[in-house]
């Protein structure tokens, strides 16, 4: 059972109060993008065994979307952060580097 903290309302709760929303920080593609870029945007997802960045929604709470950093192998949650950003915050990355030296995720390390 994951325990997540909503960065908006501050509630810490079990995963049943939240809903996973898939990979974080996707770059959206649209008209004008080539086929490969559009295919990547629609279907290719990071599927790491280890550190992963995701979108989550506090569905049975304040209803806000936010981000979470998590280990898909151990289920450890490294931290959560607001949705209004395109990259994970530096202090969270420092925590992850400390716990998982050498991790990489889509160019972030």
């Amino acid at each position: 059972m994951l325990i997540l903290t909503c960065p908006y309302c501050g509630v810490t709760a079990e995963e049943t109060e939240f809903h996973g929303g898939g990979e974080a920080h996707l770059k959206r593609e649209g008209p004008g993008s080539d086929d490969a870029a559009l295919e990547g945007y629609l279907f290719h997802r990071e599927n790491p065994r280890g550190v992963h960045f995701e979108r989550w929604r506090h569905v049975y709470g304040c209803g806000k979307w936010f981000h979470a950093a998590r280990d898909t192998q151990t289920l450890e949650v490294f931290g959560t952060y607001p949705a209004q950003t395109t990259t994970p915050p530096e202090d969270l990355l420092a925590t992850i580097r400390d716990k998982r030296p050498g991790f990489t995720w889509r160019g972030i390390s």
């Binding site: 079990e14 049943t16 998590r70 151990t74």
Partner: peptide, 13 residues
């Protein structure tokens, strides 16, 4: 489970 993982365990709920 509703999220990516490699735990071979599954959520209790």
């Amino acid at each position: 489970d509703g999220y990516n993982n490699y735990t071979q365990r599954g959520s209790f709920h």
